[in-house]
Amino acid sequence: MHIDWFVFFSQIVNFLILLFLLKKFLYGRIIGAIDARKAKIGALFAEAEQSRQDARTAAEDCERKRQDLEERYEQSLNEARREAETYRERLMEKAREEVDYLKVRWTEALRAERNNFLHELRQLAGRQIYAATRRVLKDLADLNLEERIVEVLLARIASMDENERNKFRGPAREGGTITVTCAFDIPTAAQARLNDTLHRYLSGDMDVTYVRSDDILSGCELRSDGHKISWSMKDYLDTIEERFYSALYEEAQEQRT
């Protein structure tokens, strides 16, 4: 077991050569590759981290935009609701006004129709009562209704007090006329009696005009410058109209209930 000094130094040299060669071909390259890989992976990680940050920022941005959109959507929806509510209320108000208008018109139409009906009823009733009264008077007492009406008018003229007569005399003295309006043609004899009576109680030189008018229901009136005396079936017909009106109202109330 001896040491060969040539081999000993040769091994030292061999080792140093091996050290140099491995350092050149193995360690340097391998460590370089490892460091390069570490740097590359580090760069990749940094890039990934950057991408993650970007993605997070983008996600936060998207979330913020989404919330903005949601808020705006809610706002728009609320505005639309408010507008729709306002529009609905306006439409309701308009419909209510139209209904009220139609109701008023309908009420007015109904009232006009009722008035027309009552007017026609009044006319018809007046005529019927007049005709019936005329026949009754003729049949029972052999009297002429028109003559009786003129008689009543004459009696009223005769029974006027002085104050009332002066109301008619004033216009007569100024050249005015007295108009006698009747619902029928006054017979000539009756006209003569009326002339006499008027001339006697009011004024002797006044003109008397005779007019027939259907507006005066079964009666006669004396008119001069806004003053008049008359007799007609108006009071009776007013009573009848009032009764009919009450009957119609009660009927309508019953139908409603």
Binding site: N14, I17, L18, L21, L22, F25, L26, R29, I30, G32, A33, A36, R37, K40
Partner: peptide
Amino acid sequence: MGVLVIGSILITGNLSSD
């Protein structure tokens, strides 16, 4: 030595940093 050096040269000839 030869095996180590030649093996190193062969293997580290086309090292990849990927």
